[in-house]
Amino acid sequence: MQSNAPAEPSQYRITLFFGPEPVATKPSTYACVYNVKKRSWKGGIQVSIEITQRQIDRAVDSISFRRWLAEVLFGSIPADGTELAGRAHELFIQAVCRTKLDLLLQSGIAQENQCLIADTYSQELEETLPDKSAFITSYVASELDILSGDTSPS
C-alpha cells in the first residue's frame, strides 16, 4: 500500500494521455487524462483531471490569456487563424489541468487510477494561476511552435 505523503512533482514522470475531452455525464466539463509514474512505483497510473468551463474562463481572465495570444499571433496569423486559436485554447486547458494535477501531487497521491473532480482544488487553482502564467503561456507557445521573446502576459 502506498503512502499519501506529500511529494515534489519532480519525483513524477507525467505524460498527457489525451484531452481535453468533454465529460459525457457533466455538461460544460472537460477532462485531461495523464499517465503518472513516480520513481519508486513499479508501474504508473492514470489520473483524469476535470475542469469546468467556468474555471477555464476564470483562468483565461486571471492570466490575460486572450490578450497574450493576440499579441503573440499579431502579424503571424496564418490564413486560417481560427484553427490556430482553437488549438491554443485546447493547449491552454491542458496546461491548466496540469497545474491542477501538480496541486494533487503536492498533497500526495495513491498509486491507483483516479479522477480529480472539477470542484477539487478550485480555490487553490485560482490562487496559483497568476504564478503559473509563464508556465502556461510557454507551454502553449512551445506546442504551437511560436517563437516569442516574452511569453508572459504584460
Score class of each variant (00 low, 15 high):
Gln2Asn: 12
Glu8Ala: 13
Glu8Ser: 15
Ser10Asp: 10
Tyr12Thr: 05
Tyr12Val: 07
Arg13Ile: 10
Thr15Met: 07
Thr15Trp: 04
Phe17Val: 02
Phe17Ala: 06
Gly19Lys: 00
Pro20Ile: 02
Glu21Ser: 08
Glu21Gly: 00
Glu21Ala: 07
Pro22Tyr: 02
Thr25Ile: 06
Pro27Glu: 14
Ser28Leu: 13
Ser28Thr: 06
Thr29His: 11
Tyr30Thr: 03
Cys32Trp: 01
Tyr34Leu: 06
Tyr34Thr: 03
Asn35Tyr: 08
Lys37Phe: 08
Lys37Tyr: 06
Lys38Glu: 12
Ser40Tyr: 01
Trp41His: 07
Gly43Gln: 11
Gly43Leu: 01
Gly44Val: 02
Gly44Phe: 03
Gly44Asp: 06
Ile45Arg: 03
Arg54Gln: 12
Gln55Ile: 05
Arg58Ala: 10
Arg58Asn: 14
Arg58Ser: 11
Arg58Met: 11
Ala59Tyr: 04
Val60Trp: 03
Asp61Tyr: 06
Ser62Asn: 12
Ile63Gln: 04
Ile63Phe: 13
Ser64Val: 01
Arg66Trp: 00
Arg66Ser: 14
Arg66Asp: 15
Arg66Ala: 09
Arg67His: 10
Leu69Gly: 02
Ala70His: 06
Ala70Asn: 11
Glu71Ser: 12
Phe74Ser: 13
Phe74Glu: 15
Ile77Gly: 09
Pro78Thr: 09
Pro78Asn: 13
Ala79Lys: 12
Ala79Met: 08
Ala79Cys: 03
Asp80Glu: 14
Glu83Lys: 12
Glu83Cys: 03
Ala85Leu: 05
Gly86Asn: 14
Gly86Trp: 00
Arg87Lys: 14
Ala88Thr: 04
His89Thr: 07
His89Ala: 12
Glu90Met: 06
Glu90Val: 00
Glu90Ala: 04
Ile93Arg: 01
Ile93Leu: 00
Ile93Gln: 02
Gln94Arg: 14
Gln94Tyr: 01
Gln94Phe: 00
Gln94Asp: 04
Cys97Phe: 04
Thr99Tyr: 00
Lys100Cys: 06
Lys100Pro: 05
Leu101Thr: 03
Leu101Val: 01
Leu101Lys: 03
Leu103Ala: 10
Leu104Phe: 07
Ser107Gly: 10
Ser107Tyr: 01
Gly108His: 08
Ile109Leu: 15
Gln111Met: 10
Leu116Phe: 00
Leu116Cys: 14
Leu116Asn: 02
Ala118Val: 01
Asp119Gln: 12
Asp119Phe: 03
Tyr121Gly: 06
Gln123Met: 07
Leu125Cys: 08
Glu127Pro: 00
Pro130Phe: 11
Asp131Val: 00
Lys132Phe: 09
Ala134Glu: 13
Ala134Ser: 12
Ala134Val: 13
Val140Trp: 02
Val140Pro: 02
Val140Glu: 07
Ala141Gln: 04
Ser142Lys: 11
Leu144Asn: 01
Asp145Thr: 06
Asp145Gln: 10
Ile146Asn: 02
Ile146Lys: 00
Ile146Tyr: 10
Ser148Gly: 08
Gly149His: 07
Gly149Cys: 02
Gly149Leu: 12
Thr151Cys: 14
Ser152Phe: 00
Ser154His: 08
